[in-house]
Structure formats: C-alpha cells, structure tokens
Design a protein around this nucleic acid. Structure first.
Lengths: 186, 186
DNA sequence: AAACTTTTTAAATACCCTTATAAAAAGTAT
DNA sequence: ATACTTTTTATAAGGGTATTTAAAAAGTTT
C-alpha cells in the first residue's frame, strides 16, 4: 500500500542580482515614490512590486536581492520590471543582469500526521524543543536543505538552491519518517 | 430528568465608598509608595491591595471606588485596610465609611453547550454579532442584569446589585434556554 | 449634557507578535 | 571575524492585544 504523493508548493524564491553598474541610491529613493530608504537602518533601498509580487533590496554597488517570488520565472520577470523602472529614472543599465537563485522555500503536506517525538529520536541532525518552537528542525545533508516538520504532517523546506532539491528532500524525508514509523494516517 | 445545578462563581464586586472627609491626594500619593497618581490622566489616586486583592480609586472629595473583590466580605475587609492605611499617613477619617455595592460580575457554566444561533433568535433584547464578539449579549429585565452567553455553555453575568440577582439570573436563563431548545448535553 | 478618562473581572474569538529556517546584499557594531 | 541590521515565505505554538458587559468616582473634552 502506497500513500498519496505529498503536495508541494514553492512559497518563496530569493535571488541575488548584479546589474553591473553603480547606483545612486539617493536618486532612486527620490525618483521612485514607492522606494523606502533609511540608510542609518539598512544600506539598501527597499522597493516592492505588486505584479509579480516581490521585494527588492537595491544597493549602491549595483547589486540587488529579490525576495518573495513564487517561482524562478517570477524572479526573472520581477528583475526585468525593476530594471526598466530604474532605467526610466535615468539609471543606465546596459549589461544583462546576472541572476543567481540563492534560496527556495517550500511548504508541503504529507497527508498524514507526524509523531515528532519519534522523529526527533530516530533522525540525526535534529533539534526539537517544543516549548521553544513547535516544529522539528531537521538539517538534511543531501540535498543540503533544512526541513521544519510539524505534527500536522505539514512541513517547510528552506535553503534549496533548485526546485529539484525541494522535491528530493520531501520524498526523502517522507521515506525516512515512514521507515522509523513516525507517520500515522489521520 | 433534571440537569445538574449550574456552577456559579462571583468574580468581581465593585463598590462605592464615602469616607466623609476631604482628602489631600498629593499627600496620599507622596506618603503611599504604592499609590499611582496622574491627575492629567485621571482625577483619582489608584492604590492596589494584595490581601484581599482589590484596587481603589481615591478621590479628593473623600469618595472611593473599590474593585476586584471576590465577595462583599472582601470589599468590607479591603475598605477597612484602606482606611487604616490612610489614617496611618495622617488622613483623619472619623466617620464610619458608607459602602454601597454597585456591581457584581459572575461567571457560570450550565454544563451543556448553548446553540447561540437559536438563542439569539428566540430571546428578546439580544445582540449577537459573532464577528464582533463571540458571545450573545442578553439584557435581562428582571433581575436587571446583562448576560454574555457562549457556545461552550459558560456565561457571564454583569450588573447585579446583589448576589441573589446572580443566582436568579442564571436559573432563569437556564430555564429559558432549555424551553427554546438551545441546550445540548455535550 | 453626553462621552470620554481609570479600575476590575469572567467568557471566547480574532488579531498581532515572537519563536525557528534559508539566503543574498552592504552597512554598523563588537 | 562574527553578529547584527532588512526583505520574503510557509509552518504552528505561545504570548500578548483587542473585542463585550456592568458600575462608581471626578475630571476633561466635545
């Protein structure tokens, strides 16, 4: 008997971007009404886009961080939009932006409850302090990601560099939990 | 078949007190380290007692408000303690304090769940807006009290002038809810 | 003349925040 | 050299806030 496939949803994609040109943050913060800039608090300008929904941290070095994307495509689209906005206010970006996916976060549900006590005893590289945090923190070595396991059978995968790592990690933890008998159909 | 007696607990007794002597609030706030006095915020001095646990609002007119008592006896005892404290710092209280119970709040449990939808339709003088407040607000005319009814079968009685009103109100609402069929053993 | 200020108390909801995870960027601070 | 600062996102448990009710007192503000 085989359980149903776990449902998996990529919830957040973070990428670093190199525009190849120094940027005048004062200019950006003054020209873009949606820009937030409080240098004494954080060195980057913060800009949020609605479509696709994403947030940018723009630095004077010409590098940026894009967060909030739901997919890699979201990130590419958001970067294009951001670059157009910057060029419209006079920032001369001539090179192709170098985009690197740095982190992917996903949520998943195994469809069955997880006995966290059993899981924390049988798995390695695990931290479980329910009074501090309700989930089991499981650092998987391959793929190198961190999973947060909850009693409800839902879990979070963080630190993946690519989509495939997310799928592999969920499949793997599902098998491991099954093997140690910490799963129970609800 | 008769259901068990509802459990009732008096949770708060509020009383007004007249000491019959004008009081120098500046003196009180300086002599009593536990006194709180912020006249621009509230005209009375606030003093909290630990045994019995109660809070006093003391006004320059010589009148006070005592809140937090769990019984009428608590209030009488708290007032005596408060009067002694005031006389110890030089406030000359010679008359017997006039104490009037102004409000009693009680919590109770009927031991059975209440269908609030049914109750709000069948009872008069009722307000039920679950998205604003989870309980049904029922203004009973006799005894004149307000009841807050919850789906769990627990309720709150507020506005009673005497203990007997609390018991009568709980007994009455229990019968009314039973009569309209909004009670269900859990 | 009302409506607000303050204090107390139970009930049960909805919020908020914090806890924890990863990652980059470029500043400040130990 | 670390450890912070900021942004995003799911997950969930705990804490805190708010909501509502009554009542008095004596001030302020509509």
């Amino acid at each position: 008997m085989e359980s149903a496939e776990p449902s998996i949803t990529i919830q957040n994609v973070v990428a670093s971007v190199d525009l190849g040109t120094k940027i005048d943050l004062i200019l950006v913060s003054k020209q873009l009404e949606k820009a937030e800039y409080t240098p004494e608090q954080f060195p980057g300008v913060i800009v949020r886009l609605k479509e696709p929904k994403a947030a940018f941290l723009i630095f004077s070095t010409g590098k940026m961080v894009c967060t909030g994307g739901k997919s890699e495509e979201d990130v590419y689209e958001a970067v294009n939009t951001m670059v157009d906005m910057l060029n419209e206010i006079g920032v001369g970006i001539t090179q192709e932006p170098q985009i690197t996916i740095q982190n992917m976060v996903a949520s998943a549900s195994l469809g069955v409850e997880i006995n966290l006590e059993v899981a924390s005893f049988a798995l390695d590289n695990v931290i479980y302090e329910p009074e501090q945090f309700p989930g089991v923190i499981y650092r998987m070595r391959d793929p190198k990601v961190v999973l947060l396991l909850f009693g409800s059978g839902k879990l979070v995968v963080a630190g993946a560099k690519e989509k495939e790592d997310v799928y592999l990690a969920v499949e793997k933890v599902n098998e491991e939990l099954e093997a140690i008998g910490s799963l129970r159909t609800r």
